[in-house]
């Protein structure tokens, strides 16, 4: 029983990291109508920023995290402006291929700068583990859960209530109509990429703290998992991304503990396939009729 609870907590913690990344995926999909397959690599860039600033330059961890967020936001916005914006009216396939290209570009760039060896991620979350009724829960998991919960609540409120959040929903639903309201679609898409990248930077810190090591390809697996989480929850749906991410983390962790470490990813993807067979739009996805 204790064991189950400990695994559930670490699953929730991992899942909330996936949820943060999935939020970026789903928001970009909902608003820019594209799958940004370079989203996972933003995590890697963020993590290397932390390594550079904290491990190499010796800056305090808080500054390292801020630098990582700034760096990811700038990168996300630049990628959107340079690679995706010129393709705004192009076929979806062209945009998809471009996104994959950006992903390889970022990986190769990291390979050039940092080499192919794994770098150890600095211990920047130094909260001691706590014990409740005989179970020990690691400090970094508590911090992860607390911070991601705050971010998810804040994001939900932002999307529901703020002027910009409403504009994002309007753009997501009908670009031309939003433009006729005086909303700049381009600016809204830029903001979306900025927010998504900032979330990825934060997620990257937690992810790398959990795993301890990073390399140029570190971002791709959490990126794919988060994409799966977004689809699982219903791509384009913000609560869906949160729910999908958390469920994915819990399923992955329990599968690892009780079934098989090697098979855990296969089990995660099998669950996705089953969910999509039963509900093709994902758990919270709505069927939206394509406009002609």
């Amino acid at each position: 029983m204790m064991d189950l609870i400990v695994n559930l907590v670490s699953g929730l913690s991992l899942g909330s990291i996936y949820a943060l990344i999935a939020l970026g995926y789903t928001m970009v999909y909902g608003i820019a109508k594209m799958l940004n397959f370079a989203h996972g690599d933003i995590i890697m860039v963020g993590a290397f920023t932390v390594i550079t600033t904290v491990s190499m330059l010796g800056l305090p961890p808080a500054l390292g995290i801020i630098a990582s967020i700034v760096c990811c936001v700038v990168l996300g916005v630049c990628v959107e402006r340079i690679a995706y914006k010129p393709l705004r009216k192009a076929q979806p396939l062209a945009v998809l291929i471009t996104a994959i290209g950006v992903s390889y570009f970022l990986q190769s760039l990291a390979l050039l700068i940092f080499g192919s060896t794994q770098h150890s991620f600095p211990k920047i979350i130094t909260v001691p583990a706590i014990e409740i009724g005989g179970l020990t829960i690691q400090g970094n998991m508590l911090v992860t859960l607390a911070v991601t919960t705050i971010i998810m609540v804040a994001m939900s409120l932002f999307i529901a209530k703020s002027r910009t959040g409403k504009a994002m929903r309007a753009v997501s639903e009908d670009r031309d109509a939003a433009e006729l309201m005086g909303i700049s679609v381009n600016r809204t898409i830029t903001i979306t990429f900025a927010i998504g990248s900032a979330l990825a930077a934060v997620a990257g810190v937690f992810y790398c703290t959990t795993y301890g090591f990073i390399g140029p390809y570190t971002g791709s697996m959490p990126g794919i998992k988060a994409f799966v989480a977004a689809v699982f929850g219903g791509i384009g749906s913000i609560p869906g991304a949160m729910l999908g991410g958390i469920l994915l983390g819990v399923i992955e962790n329990l599968a690892k503990r009780y079934i098989s470490t090697e098979l855990s990813d296969a089990i995660v993807f099998a669950v996705l396939i089953i969910v999509l067979m039963v509900k093709p739009t994902g758990l919270l996805g709505k069927r939206v009729n394509e406009k002609v």
Binding site: R163, K166, A167, R169, A170, E173, D174, D176, A177, A178, L180, M181, G182, I183, K286
Partner: peptide
């Protein structure tokens, strides 16, 4: 412009639609 086919934001509330009208 009131576009052809109305093009209101179907997933937003009536009030939010009016908010969007007042976006500027």
């Amino acid at each position: 412009q009131v576009p052809e086919g109305r093009r209101i934001f179907l997933q937003m509330t009536v009030r939010e639609n009016l908010d969007m009208g007042a976006y500027t």
